[in-house]
Amino acid sequence: MNISLSINGIKHEADVEPRLLLVHFIRDLVGLTGTHIGCETSICGACTVFLDGKPVKSCTILAVQADGTEITTIEGLAKNGQFHPVQEGFWECHGLQCGFCTTGMIMAVCGLLQENPQPTEEQIRHGLEGNLCRCTGYQHIVDSVQYAANKLKTQSAKAD
């Protein structure tokens, strides 16, 4: 089937098998390998990308379902060589170790902060229940989210 979609602002057209998973389309056909696969069963969240402005697990969406959509992957998050505040938070607060969960985790955090710009620790922990991390024990991830939330708040205060 022919599909056409935009990834990080670039248009991609391809003829794909109907069963091709979106994550394989992104990783293998487009060659953006920052989106990872940790389970293929919608549990780990390593494959999280933004689809039309919302975080989704790309291992459980078919590429054909993404026809006509706009997708943002981890590679599209930094702007003009500047890290996104969430990326910055993970770096500042040691929110990653092996880095495998990190890209999906960062996308999920972006989604969380979009819904709730100033979450409590409790809300952060529940908000990230679709993403597993085996390395960090989550505390530094929570700190990273708080760092990003504060940074985004300061940024939007400045913009106002």
Binding site: T33, G34, I37, E75, F83, F90, W91, E92, G99, T103
Partner: peptide
């Protein structure tokens, strides 16, 4: 000290085995 490995990892630019084509 902040980690020097992080910039590539938080951008999805690290290369795990399946990322090597």
């Amino acid at each position: 000290v902040k980690r020097t490995e992080d910039p590539r990892l938080i951008q999805g630019l690290g290369h795990y085995v399946d990322d090597i084509k």
